[in-house]
């Protein structure tokens, strides 16, 4: 079977609709998971009683269970407990919870590099723990943690393809759905791999720009 470019051209609008949904879900989840990461890491580092144990439990739970099982639990399990989220928000929630756990660890790793001395200096200057975190620790931690945060965000973007399993019409869904009708396997999977690659490279480009900017004070 030869590679049919005309077929791909025909399916292009459908693929673009899928791509748009992939971008929406991923962008929203990346922003939300970084927020979760910042909050969780702050709770861990500031050793907020009880809550920090919950954060530890959450991170362990997410990192040691399959994403697909978490997704099915959110989509099919939660309605049984009275919480029915739409397809879109089920997807965003599962990706956010998944990536959030990793972002907590990424940012916490960055926070470890903020020395004890700096912390004591901040406190002796009268900064509250929260202001210390916001003004000193977080910016430094994000700079150090950025490569691993980018890694997690790239994984999140790729893992958004799992959402096809609950019927969210993102990029992979479109490909699998068309293949099951037209049997054009090679064309479709080749096309979405190229699209994902372009998407990840774009994300990496912007992250390296951000890294460059955050490093401004350290450049000579």
């Amino acid at each position: 079977m030869e590679f049919d470019l005309a077929y791909l051209a025909n399916q292009w609008p459908a693929l673009m609709r899928g791509l748009w949904l992939t971008i929406q879900v991923s962008a929203l989840s990346i922003v939300m998971s970084v927020t979760v990461g910042l909050c969780g890491a702050a709770i861990r580092v500031l050793q907020v009683p009880v809550v920090d144990k919950i954060v530890v439990g959450y991170v362990e739970f997410i990192r040691n269970t399959p994403l697909l099982a978490q997704l099915f639990f959110i989509f099919y399990g939660l309605p049984g407990l009275g919480l029915k989220l739409s397809l879109f928000w089920s997807g965003v929630l599962s990706l956010t919870l998944w990536a959030g756990a990793y972002q907590i660890e990424n940012i916490r790793g960055g926070l470890e590099t903020v020395g004890k001395g700096l912390r004591e200096a901040a406190f002796s200057l009268g900064l509250s723990p929260w202001r210390f975190f916001r003004l000193i620790a977080a910016p430094m931690a994000v700079r150090v943690g950025l490569p691993s945060m980018l890694n997690t965000s790239i994984s999140l973007l790729k893992n958004s393809s799992y959402l096809q399993a609950i019927g969210l019409a993102e990029l992979t869904f479109v490909a699998i759905d068309r293949i099951s009708m037209d049997f054009r396997t090679v064309e479709m999977f080749a096309a979405i791999c190229v699209i994902y690659l372009a998407l990840v490279l774009t994300l990496s480009f912007f992250a390296s720009r951000l890294e460059y900017r955050l490093n401004t004070p350290f450049r000579t």
Partner: peptide, 17 residues
């Protein structure tokens, strides 16, 4: 709403999706 298996489909119908 296109799903992968008959049991997924039935589940989703019963949950009002």
């Amino acid at each position: 709403l296109r799903l992968n298996t008959a049991s997924d489909a039935l589940q989703s119908l019963k949950q009002g999706r």
